[in-house]
């Protein structure tokens, strides 16, 4: 291949990457600009920089209530996914490898069934039958938690593969340790960063979930995503400010977990 052709291909790939980057970054950048501008309806460019919308949205009782509900409910979903999904995934890999294929298949299910279908099914099954006395938040947790399982299963699976736990387990057993002791003393500390990453991923995914929160809880419990959608029709700047705040919190948490994982990996790797 000639030098000219190679250089041409290199340029084309860089351009494609740049275009892809723009496509991905443009919407959040636009939302950010909208959140920090006084108005953006008279010309192509936003006008006046302000923190007014951020301050307003932070003070709105409706927003505070929705953020509180969302953090609480998504936190419960994420914790359950960590406890149930994490335990199932860990046990299958360490003690019952035959179950792994089943769990892998289960982890694909949430992608095969759209959340809207899940929400409508839950409405028909629970709200239609026992809506009078069943707490809808419980139904939400029961429906949303399984959707988070793939995130925990895959995150944990990758961490376990990287750790190569079998020799550690065998070494521990020959030293007289029970599997439970090994789990507590060796495996869980080594897996802690991966568990934290999985928990964060589940929490963010649950907090950003729209279809089930809107269809199942709409009208009774207001969650962040339906509120964002609703707020858009009232004051787009406030809605954008809320998105920016959410993004800032998630980014800060993500950087924190990533930093911890990198530090831990450096400390423990050969």
């Amino acid at each position: 291949m000639s030098t000219g052709v190679r250089a041409g291909r290199g340029l084309a790939s860089r351009l494609a990457l740049l275009l892809l980057g723009l496509l991905v970054l443009l919407p959040p950048l636009a939302v950010m600009l909208y959140a920090f501008s006084e108005r953006w309806d008279r010309s192509l460019w936003p006008e006046g920089a302000t923190l007014q919308w951020l301050a307003e949205v932070a003070a709105l009782p409706r927003v505070r209530a929705a953020v509180g509900q969302t953090l609480w409910l998504s936190g419960v979903c994420a914790l359950l996914a960590l406890l149930l999904g994490g335990t199932a995934s860990l046990l299958a890999r360490l003690a019952a490898p035959r179950l792994l294929a089943l769990l892998d298949a289960l982890a694909l299910l949430p992608y095969a069934i759209p959340p809207v279908v899940v929400a409508i099914g839950a409405l028909e099954l629970f709200v239609g039958q026992w809506g009078g006395w069943l707490d809808l938040r419980l139904v939400y947790v029961a429906v949303a938690t399984p959707l988070l399982f793939p995130l925990m299963h895959k995150t944990l699976g990758a961490a376990l593969e990287q750790l190569d736990v079998q020799p550690l387990l065998e070494a521990g057993r020959t030293l007289g340790a029970s599997d439970l002791h090994l789990l507590r003393r060796v495996l869980l500390p080594l897996l802690a960063p991966a568990l934290a990453a999985g928990l964060l991923l589940c929490w963010v995914t649950a907090a950003m979930e729209f279809a089930i929160a809107n269809l199942l809880l709409g009208g009774s419990v207001e969650m962040l995503q339906p509120l964002l959608n609703g707020l858009r029709g009232v004051n787009g700047h406030q809605s954008a400010a809320l998105v920016v705040m959410s993004l800032a919190v998630v980014t800060a948490l993500g950087i924190g977990v990533e930093g911890w994982m990198a530090w831990n990996a450096r400390r423990n790797s050969w």
Partner: peptide
């Protein structure tokens, strides 16, 4: 008997030291 009760010590090929300890 399970490995815990055999009273043997094992040195593994890649040592399998606990990296967090």
């Amino acid at each position: 008997a399970p490995p815990q009760q055999r009273g043997v010590g094992v040195v593994f090929q890649q040592y399998a030291l606990f990296p967090n300890l």
